[in-house]
């Protein structure tokens, strides 16, 4: 296990001023449509992020960071390592099994009936198969977990998210041989790491559904109305899932995830469920 520690206080100060000026110049910008999202920060949000967090490398890695407010670095480091470990486990090998329920109202609206998802076959990540890199920026501790054979240099460069939404939020990239999915979570200003983890988890589930899902009606009304319930069943095994890009605005965080098509397989045909 290795660690690299770097400070970027000068850089973050400069970015804070840029951000402040940008916010002052656009006081009326609401989040109207995807192109009109404006970046505003909660007080507890990081001013800058590691560049590799915004534009992750194209290899499976796990990223974690700590909440500010820890008196010492120890608990912050532990929290970041745990998050990075979970992310790396998802990237290494995961079977996503679950079902999503929904029901239709007579006027055609669709209401969510909840979902049940299990993440199975996750690997135990022993220290000998992963390497951790650490980066301290302001009050935040960042940890990158690399799997065996995917260790990449982690530069200490920092950056801010662009004020306007990137194109991949509106148009999912189309790359032959890859599946892509978007995960979104409401930004919890007191738990931004948790928001990013939730968005990543949602992207993982969306990917699993995209790879293969079975859609079925549970019931239909006798009157022939559209009312009824349905479910979406999925059971997908993935290796090499990773985050391709991240973005956030004042209200939500966005994660674009992808997996190679030949490393993702639906298990529905052999599954007992159905």
């Amino acid at each position: 296990m290795t660690e690299r520690c770097g400070r970027a206080s000068g850089s973050s100060l400069r970015w804070s001023w840029v951000l402040l000026l940008a916010l002052t110049a656009t006081p009326g910008c609401a989040h109207r449509g995807t192109s009109g999202h404006a970046v505003t920060r909660a007080d507890s949000a990081p001013a800058v992020y590691p560049l590799w967090f915004i534009h992750p490398p194209a290899v499976p890695t796990g990223v974690g960071f700590s909440l500010p407010g820890h008196v010492t670095r120890g608990p912050a480091y532990t929290q970041a390592v745990e998050m990075a470990g979970r992310m790396l486990a998802w990237s290494t090998h995961v079977r996503v099994r679950g079902e999503r329920l929904y029901w239709r109202t007579p006027d055609g609206r669709l209401e969510s009936g909840g979902q049940k998802v299990e993440l199975l076959e996750l690997p135990e990540l022993a220290p000998d198969i992963c390497q951790l890199d650490t980066l301290n920026i302001d009050r935040y501790t960042w940890v990158v977990a690399h799997g065996r054979g995917s260790v990449i240099p982690v530069p200490a460069a920092v950056a801010s998210f662009t004020p306007s939404a990137p194109a991949w939020i509106a148009v999912t990239p189309r790359e032959p041989g890859w599946h892509h999915a978007l995960g979104i979570a409401t930004l919890a200003s007191r738990d931004e790491p948790g928001s990013w983890e939730l968005a990543t988890y949602r992207a993982l589930v969306e990917l699993a559904i995209g790879v293969g899902a079975r859609s079925g009606d549970l019931e239909k009304t006798l009157t022939g109305e559209q009312a009824g319930a349905g479910r979406l069943v999925f059971d997908t095994r993935m290796q090499g899932f990773h985050v391709a890009a991240r973005w956030r605005d004042a209200h939500n965080v966005f994660v674009l995830a992808r997996v190679r098509a030949d490393r993702a397989r639906t298990m529905l045909e052999t599954s007992d469920d159905g």
Partner: peptide
């Protein structure tokens, strides 16, 4: 039919508030 949704994807999305 049971395996219909193999490779389904959201090509485009538009979000309005």
């Amino acid at each position: 039919t049971d395996q219909t949704l193999v490779g389904s994807r959201a090509d485009q999305r538009e979000i309005l508030s």
